[in-house]
């Protein structure tokens, strides 16, 4: 146990030190990787623990980007006020949206979420305050170290929150919902309330990630902010790393971001394909994610993969 904590602390220290020994390219890659890890970890709250697959969390990222951009570019407010504004909007939107759609289960919920980002993107490109199709330009601040450390702090906060969830009554409620929602209700779990709370938490962290990203790149538009490929990535990274675990989404996001970066350098066009292939392989061979592989493989060796298949095939 102590060894594990030490390893974790060393990993965090190493990540925090990147701006001091890494070059500009590595820092920029780091910001993107840390932010997408925040998205994966946020997705994990509802998707991993409660089993509700959302393909629409990018809407909170978009709202976060727009919240910060509107506050800074239209109202000349400082960044931190923009972040509070952005998070508030996203959480309110999650609560409002969650009320009708979190009553849907399984594929119904998943499919509804597919449409959210497209709808919000259409809305943003029709609103004056959001700069319509053109988008908004934010004030420029050149300090990648600051953005990097802010992203790392955000990821740490999201991960600590998930660590708390994994040990709390709240987390048990989400897990019970994932395992059998009817049985959870008859045991006394107010499923709707817990699911909305989980979505709101996800919205909070996702929106702040979007806000940091907007300020960092200083320019946003509807297509780039409500970007549905983000949904693809956060879902895949979480599933690959280990849904419903504390570190799985972070490991999955950092590993896949790194592989993607290498691939994008050499075979730029096929890099997106790679994500699709990862998910096909992961669902078949690693249904419980990368973090389950360690323990399972130690016990079963190669039979680990066979056992996974045998369990679910017809």
């Amino acid at each position: 146990m102590n060894g594990r904590w030490f390893a974790l602390a060393a990993a965090v220290a190493l990540l925090a030190g990147v701006p001091w020994f890494g070059n500009a390219v590595l820092i920029q890659f780091g910001i993107n990787a840390l932010l997408i890890a925040v998205l994966a970890q946020s997705w994990n709250i509802l998707g991993g623990f409660a089993g509700y697959v959302s393909f629409g969390n990018s809407v909170f990222y978009g709202l976060g980007s727009y919240g910060v951009a509107i506050a800074m570019a239209q109202w000349n407010l400082p960044f931190w006020v923009g972040l509070i504004f952005a998070a508030t909007i996203a959480v309110a939107f999650a609560a409002l949206l969650g009320w009708p759609i979190l009553r849907l289960r399984g594929p119904y919920f998943a499919i509804v979420t597919l449409g959210i980002s497209a709808a919000m993107s259409a809305l943003a490109s029709n609103l004056d305050i959001a700069g319509k199709n053109v988008g908004l330009i934010l004030p420029l601040t050149r300090n990648d170290t600051l953005f990097y450390e802010a992203s790392l702090v955000l990821l740490a906060a999201a991960t600590l929150t998930v660590a708390w969830i994994a040990r709390s009554r709240f987390g048990m409620a989400l897990i019970a919902i994932r395992e059998d929602e009817d049985a959870a209700a008859s045991v006394g779990v107010n499923a709707t309330r817990f699911k909305i709370a989980a979505l709101a938490m996800a919205a909070f962290f996702t929106a702040i990630a979007g806000g940091i990203h907007a300020y960092w790149i200083t320019y946003i538009d509807p297509a780039g902010s409500f970007d549905t490929t983000l949904d693809v990535r956060m879902v895949i990274m979480t599933m690959f790393g280990g849904p419903g675990t504390v570190l799985g989404p972070v490991v999955g996001a950092l590993v896949l971001s790194a592989i993607y970066e290498v691939l994008a350098d050499s075979i730029s066009k096929a890099a997106a394909l790679f994500f699709g292939i990862v998910i096909l392989v992961a669902v078949i061979f690693l249904p419980r994610g990368l973090v389950d592989l360690g323990g399972g493989f130690r016990v079963l060796r190669w039979r680990y993969f066979l056992t996974n298949i045998r369990q679910y095939r017809i």
Binding site: M172, I175, E179, D180, D182, A183, A185, S186, V187, N190
Partner: peptide
């Protein structure tokens, strides 16, 4: 249903509905 559970009504299912992936202890702990 959950509110009735809070008032003190508990039920079992004719076809048992455990939380399948959890341990027996955690099932009862929930």
């Amino acid at each position: 249903a959950y509110a009735r559970a809070h008032l003190g009504i508990a039920r079992t299912y004719q076809i048992a509905k455990p939380f399948p992936d959890l341990s027996v202890r955690d099932n009862v702990a929930i």
